[in-house]
Nucleic acid binder design. Structure first.
Lengths: 223, 223
DNA sequence: CATGGCAACTGGCCGGACCAGTGCACCGCG
DNA sequence: CGCGGTGCACTGGTCCGGCCAGTTGCCATG
């Protein structure tokens, strides 16, 4: 038999773990409140410093938010991908992620999403994508910013249609960076409007392929 | 003109930010040490609680590790995807991620990686993949555990050959879950050895496609 | 009935204290 | 002189008590 190396478990980790579990198990739902720090320190039978360190960790994980002075205590946040995005941003810095890598990754994700969307979309999904395209068309005259936002909505719709939460998360993670990128690309083009129109045209072809359930073609077009 | 809503910046956040920047900028490299908490509290002119809360955040982000009693102070860690994996695990729990979603995602990633690998591999990459396959072959008689480990190495090699850090990260993120899965699948099969042999055969075909630079075929096989 | 002020909280931050553990230098032994 | 054991200085983990600025909601005041 083998023994496991024993490593000390910090008190604040126990606190973090308990609260995390309560959230994941659904005992604590987004919008609900945690007790105040002074109350928690009684419930967990630890000092306030320990409670605070635990709350710091949970906060940096994007699970809760605490505001000074709020008598209702720390707020349980709805899940968001900001923690993922932060980790990814960190990865980007450390690994010297280039824009090329990012764009390439985005295209792959997009291609995969289109493929899945072409296979398993529902009328609602198509409708959402149509709406996004219409919005992009309308935004043609409203300037680059509005257009970029509509562009994001389209990609979001595709990711949703794909039906895989992980893909949607990947999409969300690169969203912000891509937004910036699209904006830059458009404003650098000699003819902004033409560039936007070209983008729109490509998107429409992707949508067509998805609607007609041609996975391979949809994936190809997205790249 | 519009005013921005002013929100208080916590002292510990400033500390986190400064240390993060120092790491990202390369002023602090992995393996190096931070000053002790008592020293840092002098340098940042804050209390120890504040320093500690900052360190907690950095630790939960996987950037540093501190051990009690170590006179050298907190250790700067090499980058790892554990933070990313934790966020993703969190996502999985909240979004009720199913095994199907996970496997599907993994196949997509794998497909994309194979495609890129087929396009841009180098002799070293092929060599690594060959080695992994050989190890798998050898593991055929060593049991499921060894085989699964070798299997992981193969996927890791493909992700590396793809050359996109984000893909590699995605691979790392789902790795653990997949390991468990592969193991289960094999042990459930009527004939373990046959199942393993079949897996091996498929992997070899993927490698062949990659070597012969057939992106589409490699992607298809991976799925 | 609206409104302004007040009090009872909140979280943010500080300082000091104690403890168990670690690493290193020192010292005595062989 | 080399080496192993020992002690000490220091570490992080945790606790306590306190102060401050801010928020909320109630209540008295107009």
């Amino acid at each position: 038999m083998g023994f496991d190396p024993v490593q000390p478990v910090r008190a604040y980790e126990r606190v973090v773990e308990q609260i995390e579990r309560a959230i994941y198990r659904g005992d604590l739902k987004p919008g609900e409140r945690l007790s105040s720090e002074r109350q928690l320190m009684v419930e967990f039978a630890v000092s306030r410093s320990t409670v605070r360190e635990a709350l710091r960790v949970l906060q940096s994980a994007g699970l809760i938010r605490s505001r000074p002075g709020d008598p209702n205590g720390p707020l349980i946040l709805p899940f968001s991908t900001i923690a993922l995005e932060k980790s990814l941003a960190s990865l980007a810095r450390v690994e010297q992620l280039s824009l090329v890598d990012l764009l390439q990754f985005r295209m792959l994700i997009e291609g995969a999403a289109s493929m899945l969307a072409a296979r398993g979309h529902t009328p609602e999904h198509i409708e959402a994508m149509e709406a996004a395209l219409t919005a992009m068309e309308a935004a043609l005259d409203e300037g680059e910013a509005a257009f970029s936002v509509a562009d994001l909505a389209f990609h979001e719709a595709i990711a949703s249609a794909a039906g895989n939460p992980l893909l949607r998360a990947c999409n969300a993670v690169v969203r912000d960076v891509v937004l910036e990128l699209v904006l830059k690309k458009i404003s650098e083009a000699p003819d902004h409007r033409a560039q936007m129109a070209e983008t729109l045209r490509l998107h429409r072809k992707v949508l067509d392929a998805v609607r007609e359930r041609q996975p391979a073609r949809a994936a190809e077009l997205s790249r």
